[in-house]
Simulated scan of single mutants.
Amino acid sequence: MAGVSPSTLRLWESQSLIQPIRTATGQRVYDKALVDRLKRIAWLRSEKGLNPAAIRETLRDEAALSDEDRSEPDDEAIDASDVRPGTRMRRLRRDAGRTLESVAQATGVAVSQLSTFERTSQGLSFTALHEVARHLGTTLASLSGQEEGRGGESLIRDGKWPSWPTTSSGVAVQVLAEGRNQMECNRFQLAPGASSEGAYQHEGEEFIHMLQGNLEIVLDGDQFFELGPGDSFYFESRRPHSWRNVSDGETVLIWINTPATF
């Protein structure tokens, strides 16, 4: 169930990563909570490359934050006027009856990162944020507030673009068409080195038109495309895709998604 061998279980026990339940005859027993902990240890070991000491520290921090989450006030006590992405995410999570730990287990995002994002709306990569939003049945655009208001005509003057709250370092997203529409039209400004920090996918289609700089798009993990000023690029959103600014300066582009699944 945890995807590891019996010898690995015994090793982790000797390293104080796991303490199985013992029967009167000394037999080891693993309940659901322990199996979930084993899966988390395996993920931290294989995906993050953490050593036993770092894994123990991570698990302690996550347990402390999980306890903190259980003692948080009810949503009614949260300022209703607070519409930051982190607060929106916290409301959605609580409405779904999920703890930080359960969301972490489902998405592979650390509890500490989730807790920090809910409090500050900072600390999640674009890819992690997209994965958590999808798990909670929402989209990045909805968390940012882009989908508020009616659809229909939308006029935004040059340089007056409403901006998403900044959640990922070096990534600024400006809205080119407001409201709940079938197309999500955004202007991306990427600082040097800014990236999605991993691949993500969703339903729909995407169109990019480059205004400035250079962007590398990777599809399916092995198809690389470098775009420069004036280039346009279309692809299906269900294909795993990642991106990064590969120029020495700022990269600016128009990015359109349809339908509204971004």
Rank of each mutant, 00 (worst) to 15 (best):
L44H: 07
R45G: 10
R45W: 14
S46C: 00
S46D: 14
L50E: 06
N51L: 01
P52Q: 03
P52M: 06
P52D: 05
P52Y: 07
A54K: 09
E57M: 07
E57T: 06
T58F: 02
L59R: 05
R60F: 07
R60P: 00
R60I: 11
D61C: 11
D61T: 14
E62F: 03
A63C: 00
A64P: 01
A64I: 09
L65H: 03
S66R: 08
E68Y: 13
D69E: 08
S71F: 04
P73H: 08
D74I: 03
D75L: 15
D79N: 11
A80Y: 12
P85N: 08
T87D: 09
R88F: 09
R90E: 05
R93M: 04
R94H: 09
D95F: 11
G97Y: 00
T99W: 01
T99P: 00
L100T: 00
S102W: 08
S102I: 02
Q105Y: 15
Q105P: 01
Q105E: 15
A106V: 06
V109Q: 04
S112N: 13
L114D: 02
T116E: 12
T116L: 14
T116K: 12
R119K: 10
R119F: 05
R119G: 07
S121T: 08
Q122S: 11
G123A: 02
S125D: 00
S125N: 03
T127L: 04
T127H: 13
A128P: 05
A128Y: 06
H130Q: 12
H130L: 01
